[in-house]
């Protein structure tokens, strides 16, 4: 799949995602809180949020926003081991697939949210996503590019978190 330049979102995806939407992390990264503020305070998208949501929390969601990246500090704060967090993410993804909930995966943490553990959750989430948004530092090694190509998932790469917000905004249909 091609990498789309900033703001160049595939036309078939523009306004293609519906609300209610739900934001959770995949890896307990605090970047999820940033995406929440971006989506709700700045863009007024009104998405629900729980950094450690359980599958039942997303039952009614039409769009699931997964914020990718493993944080040891976040895992500790949530009282989860990496294995438990991966299990939670698998369950969330399974619930989304069961309900035909569409998935936006977003990675804003740059190189700090890359590494063996983060790559594990990225490899888990990207193949089941309808679109992936990545802030460019996180894709310096082309990891997202090759993973998206392999799984035929559109990838939108942006230079900053603020511009990731613009992409997110364009994906959601007006209410």
């Amino acid at each position: 799949m091609p990498i789309f330049a900033q703001y160049s979102v595939p036309s078939n995806l523009v306004a293609n995602f519906e609300r209610p939407g739900f934001i959770t992390s995949a890896g307990q990264t605090s970047d999820a809180a940033i995406v929440k503020v971006l989506a709700n305070t700045r863009l007024k998208l009104g998405l629900d949020y729980d950094i450690a949501a359980k599958p039942q929390a997303i039952e009614n969601a039409k769009t699931l926003v997964l914020v990718l990246g493993v944080s040891n500090k976040g895992l500790g704060a949530a009282g989860l081991s990496l294995e438990q967090e991966i299990e939670r993410v698998k369950n969330i993804v399974a619930e989304a697939i069961k309900n035909n909930t569409r998935i936006i995966s977003i990675h804003t943490g740059g190189t700090a949210r890359r590494g063996e553990a983060s790559n594990q959750v990225i490899e888990l989430c990207v193949p089941v996503s309808n679109v992936v948004i990545v802030v460019e530092g996180g894709n310096n090694d082309g990891f997202f590019t090759s993973l998206c190509e392999k799984n035929n998932v559109p990838l939108v790469q942006v230079p900053s978190i603020a511009e990731a917000g613009n992409v997110l905004m364009s994906l959601f249909a007006a209410q």
Binding site: S30, A33, I34, V37, L38, R42, G109
Partner: peptide, 22 residues
């Protein structure tokens, strides 16, 4: 970024650390 969740709950601190919302 690591503590943005609690930071975002205090408006005066948010204005210092996220003057444009992010």
């Amino acid at each position: 970024a690591d503590r943005f969740d609690p930071i975002s709950r205090n408006e005066p601190l948010l204005q210092i650390l996220a003057p444009e919302g992010l």
